[in-house]
Write a protein that binds this DNA or RNA. Structure first.
Length: 184
DNA sequence: CGGATTTGACCAGCGC
DNA sequence: GCGCTGGTCAAATCCG
């Protein structure tokens, strides 16, 4: 699977509700689902990957996850500009299609790492929380959401970065089989 | 009242 | 096989 670490949204778009979506427009313009085209297997992240994030100073972090193969080629874009404009997202999203796809069939997963004070960010879809869990080696707990649209099994989980709690890692899994419930 | 959230229980995969 | 861990279920609860 691939991880795209992006830093798309500006952290203070969270004020909206109902109206003024203009703020998040920037994000929904490029539709998350656009990133969800990568396939390749799952796993490789969650499982107690002790020293991942070797160091995340600026720039790209090439997650050298332990055992797992040669994946982990996400081109993190947009390092750390707090008020990161979506504009910075652009390019370098490369899909490294894997050679092997293991057990779980087509799960595409995409992880966004975002600097935000909000735990949940509104990405235009309706999510229903179905669980939360404290993961090992992490002070923060992980939240599990499922797309509330019927027949759409897309899941996502949200957790804060281990050692920089100002970041939120949102991992999407699956592809929506429907459009965003909101009309832009 | 209806849908979303909460929260502990339950389940499956993996390592030992 | 056992226990740990991450992921999911579901009944109770919350909240509009």
């Amino acid at each position: 699977m691939d991880y795209y670490y992006v830093n798309p949204i500006n952290p203070n778009y969270g004020a909206h509700h109902d109206d003024d979506y203009s703020a998040m427009m920037s994000m929904s313009d490029f539709m998350i689902s656009d990133f969800l085209m990568a396939d390749d297997d799952a796993y490789g992240y969650g499982v107690d990957d002790h020293h991942h994030h070797n160091n995340q100073e600026s720039g790209s972090q090439s997650q050298s996850t332990n055992g797992s193969s040669e994946m982990a080629t996400f081109s993190d874009v947009t390092t750390t500009n707090n008020n990161g404009e979506a504009s910075s997202i652009n390019n370098n999203i490369k899909c490294k299609n894997g050679s092997k796809r293991s057990k779980k069939e087509v799960n595409s997963r995409v992880a966004f790492r975002t600097k935000s004070e909000l735990d949940v960010m509104d990405d235009g879809y309706r999510w229903r929380k179905y669980g939360k869990k404290a993961v090992k080696n992490t002070p923060n707990l992980r939240n599990y959401y499922k797309c509330s649209s019927e027949g759409c099994g897309v899941k996502k989980r949200v957790e804060r970065d281990r050692d920089d709690s100002s970041y939120v890692i949102t991992t999407y899994e699956g592809i929506h089989n429907h459009a965003s419930p909101f009309t832009y």
